[in-house]
Design a protein around this nucleic acid. Structure first.
Lengths: 216, 216
DNA sequence: TAATAAATTTAGACAAGTCTAAATTTTTAA
DNA sequence: TTAAAAATTTAGACTTGTCTAAATTTATTA
């Protein structure tokens, strides 16, 4: 088995790999809130274990074995988040830290039974896809609302920023997963947008528009 | 907050304190599967933190602060065991190791909501009492079946040995929590006992009788 | 109650994971 | 295309929790 630290590194490499081919030491240091030197040390260890592809100064990517482990951790994280929201009635901005601990509970049998208990959910409370026990999942075809033109519409299906602050803001504006919205106006000056949702008009900044994802 | 190792020491001291006033270094080393020297090191650390009462060579006991923490860990362990058995359909002999990990999830709010979700259970799947959020609990008045005389009866309400092997044996004999039994015969030679349970006669050894607890 | 045994602690070492400071490599840009 | 900047790695140190071996204290018993 792998240590807590190793699991967190694999997970972080996985997340960063979604945006770029190869992940840098500094990117990892920033995400893991540690120093580049510490990252280098751990990368050597993970390379020895053949969980990553790593060459000095050249960045890092997950090996097949490493990705498999990372996907299991992501699966556990998202299933526990779903549990916390759907069964224990936490809000979507409250569950990340707890799931961060729970994702390291090792039993596969436990996570599979949890999955079944909740009827095999496909997406977590933030709209992120939940890998199945083989690590497979289907992501939504997501676009930031900011890329939509006036008249375009879609269903809110994910967020790019997972911070509690952003999630609380969305909740307050009633911009939550599943809501149908339509872009009715774009302000030329600051690129802010006005959305139609149910019978309300909601004004959002460009920054919010870039971090709120919809399926068309 | 306390480290994983510290939590495990506090929990172990708590469990050993139930049988004896003061806990010895060797007892802890045996229970924690470590060496006496390691235990001494940790006891110094816990004493510095005022979580235990410790004087060299004199054994150790929990301080009020230490007991409070230990009870929270026990609470979490037992609530998660209950969850695993009642919600995820694990057997009572399968849940200990998982709960051993889950008991370290830190959020109090989480454990309190879990408690509510399951309707505030008072006993875990092995009959052990679950402390409430203040650390209070009421234990059953338990007696080993081995202390009962012929003609005596009671309800199976706990076990002294929590090992999977013992639990599996009991399951097979249908000697599970809640079952009403009566002692119908005691064999003079080996002190084994014959119990009446439902319409069956069940023959158990003295060893089993000493580890199976009933409420009269 | 003295000497032997058992229990416990101390001393010194080690692995994991982290850090700072210095050295090296890569990238950027003049 | 080379000098400066940025990124990364190495070297050496520190903390936590553990270990073995030796020393010390307590308990046992002859």
């Amino acid at each position: 088995m792998n240590t807590l630290a190793e699991e967190n590194y694999l997970k972080s490499i996985y997340h960063l790999s979604l945006n770029s081919q190869s992940v840098s030491t500094n990117q990892l240091a920033a995400l893991l809130n540690t120093k580049a030197a510490s990252v280098t040390d751990m990368l050597k260890k993970l390379a020895d274990k053949q969980l990553i592809n790593y060459a000095r100064y050249q960045g890092v990517s997950l090996s097949a074995a490493g990705e498999k482990i990372a996907l299991q951790i992501v699966r556990k994280h998202r299933l526990w988040e779903y549990f916390l929201v759907e069964k224990l009635n936490f809000k979507w901005d409250e569950v990340h830290e707890m799931a961060e601990e729970m994702e390291h509970i090792s039993s596969m049998e436990l996570v599979n039974r949890l999955d079944k208990f909740m009827n095999f959910p496909k997406y977590d409370p933030h709209g992120d896809p939940i890998p199945d026990s083989d690590g497979n999942f289907k992501a939504h075809e997501l676009k930031p609302i900011g890329t939509i033109e006036v008249g375009g519409s879609g269903i809110i299906s994910g967020v790019r920023d997972h911070s509690a602050g952003f999630l609380q803001y969305l909740e307050k504006q009633q911009l939550t997963i599943g809501k149908k919205i339509k872009v009715t106006e774009i302000n030329e000056y600051d690129n802010s947008m006005i959305l139609q949702a149910d019978d309300k008009k909601i004004h959002i900044s460009r920054e919010v528009a870039n971090n709120l994802l919809i399926v068309i």
